[in-house]
Amino acid sequence: MLSDSGSSAPPDAIPVTLTINGQERRLRVAPWTTLLDLLREELDLTGTKKGCDHGQCGACTVIVDGKRINSCLALAVQKDGASVTTIEGLSSGALHPVQAAFLEHDAFQCGYCTPGQIMSAVALIEEGRARSREEIREHMSGNICRCGAYANIVDAVEDVLKTKSSSFREAAE
């Protein structure tokens, strides 16, 4: 177990325990610290991005207790006891299939929305709700890509879904 004092944590900081990328961490966080700022500013996990800080872009998407959320709108203290997976925890060594598919399909350009897109796609695949390109599009619409890589993002997600499941509709549209 790691114990981080949190150098800039004020004296009224609250102790929380979070399992981040499989590692249990005891932290002290101010109540107004969002999960996103905790990751980026305190823990140097800058793979999770801040694009709008208001839940309007999805760049900050992480998986908390198995569900994708916007980490910018979650207060870290509220997540005491939770398990958090960020882009840094998705793979060790070889790329996760979704990461590999993004690379292969050129599903990004500037890369800034990419970790959020990938975390969202990983969760989408787990949710099991996307069975057509149309459904991928809708359920990936919480992640804005200003470079406009959407068509390639759908290709990448579809590719992974097809290898995982035969129920994906080939020509649903």
Binding site: G55, G58, E127
Partner: peptide
């Protein structure tokens, strides 16, 4: 409404 991420939270 909203997005899958927001609906989860």
């Amino acid at each position: 409404g909203a997005s899958p991420q927001l609906r989860n939270a």
